[in-house]
Design a protein around this nucleic acid. Structure first.
Lengths: 229, 229
DNA sequence: CGTTAATGTGACTTCGAGGTCATGCTTTCT
DNA sequence: AGAAAGCATGACCTCGAAGTCACATTAACG
């Protein structure tokens, strides 16, 4: 944020310039800047497409670079490694989701009546739906790869799953304490809903499984309302 | 089944004996036979343990052989490759589950009243529970690895997921036709239940998530009954 | 326009995993 | 016992992926 230095520290042949420098060269809207963003996008898109199709571990850095239309060496100028790329792919969704959940936390804290609580939960659902609509492929990657351990490229996804689950359980616990739910352990109802939603999303994203999308959503809502609320 | 040959065709230095012969040497309870079974068990157990801990693709054949207390070359005497080992690990569960579902199919075919139908479904649930109790680790491997594509070692798990889903949807459709369920598309209710059950099982197997197991099961049943039945 | 440094390239190095094989050991059968 | 064949071993070979680097190209800035 704070500009402690000139755009670039001019030193005569010092670093071999291995990694891209933290501070980009001068012009903010300049060609360099634009190229950088294009390359980053290309790498993220190529990686996401290949990961979805063939699985994270089966995809090589060469594959990604080629599909992004660049050379392998350049890949390492933009990301540390495959794990870092997965992290970059996941980042926007993760940020959206956490922001939505924290906002929901604040609203339920401030709420004094049941209607305010319900409004907060509804708003959360809307924001999550929005994130899903904006980044369906990222959600699919998460659904497909988050559960398998090992190969640290998947670590960002596993972390996200863990945090997401914890937060959801906490939220459910709170709803439970306010008497909004049936006498079912919050852990159980939270996991059941997460599992059901995730499985339906996966079927939708992988197989276009539902003729009537709206009916499917309505059915899901009905099942949840009658099953746990 | 039929013994067309003597235990082994004696030829003077013919095959280099690369793979284990289909027909084992003579004694059925002999030392050879016992050793074979021990090795197979050791490999399956070692593979399963390592796969669970580090993920299928991160585990090498060397790792498995070492953990099973044998040499790498020997690994290939017992299985084709990692995929084949995964298949061997999954086999018992798959057989149990398919047998149970086919039995359920037959019983629902023969059923003339609702009570008989309900009995068939209950029996299926009991048999699935039994399979889970007998092979919890295999179930966990399935839950962790089935969704991710690529790396053909996981293909047996993906196949199983697909068949299992299809069969469950068919079963649900039938129940729906008999008027046992709410007006919810069978695809939706089937996937929702599968997803919820799988997520709860995973939490149980990975994290010992439930203080009171019986209460968790009762809650799940209640949610399903009130949510979709 | 010329200099400087960031950016792009792909051949190269390194390393580890899959799979093979010559050799020696064990079981079986006569 | 002794031969025959399955069984076990780990060094070895091969291949492909990760990551590096010297050099070429391009943008920035005077």
């Amino acid at each position: 944020m704070s500009s402690t230095e000139k755009p670039v520290a001019r030193r005569t042949r010092a670093r071999p310039a291995r990694k891209a420098p933290a501070q980009r060269p001068g012009p903010v809207g300049g060609k360099r800047d634009r190229n950088r963003q294009e390359r980053t996008r290309a790498l993220i898109d190529a990686g996401l497409a290949l990961f979805l199709e063939r699985g994270i571990d089966s995809v090589t850095v060469d594959d990604i670079a080629k599909k992004a239309g660049t050379a392998k060496g350049n890949f390492y100028r933009y990301v540390e490694d495959k794990r870092d790329l997965v992290d970059a792919i996941l980042a926007p969704v993760r940020d959206d989701v956490f922001a939505a959940m924290q906002a929901c936390d604040r609203e339920t804290d401030a709420a004094r009546e049941v209607t305010a609580l319900n409004a907060a939960y509804l708003k959360l659902a809307m924001r999550l739906l929005e994130a899903y609509r904006t980044h369906p492929d990222v959600v699919r990657l998460y659904l497909q790869e988050a559960r398998a351990p090992g190969g640290d490229a998947r670590a960002p996804l596993a972390d996200f799953e863990q945090k997401l689950t914890e937060h959801t359980v906490a939220l459910t616990t709170r709803a439970h304490e306010h008497g909004l739910l049936k006498k079912i352990p919050p852990m159980v109802s939270a996991l059941a809903v997460i599992g059901a939603v995730e499985r339906l999303l996966l079927a939708h994203l992988r197989d276009q499984a539902f003729d009537n999308e709206a009916e499917a959503v309505a059915s899901l809502v009905r099942m949840v309302m009658e099953g746990i609320v």
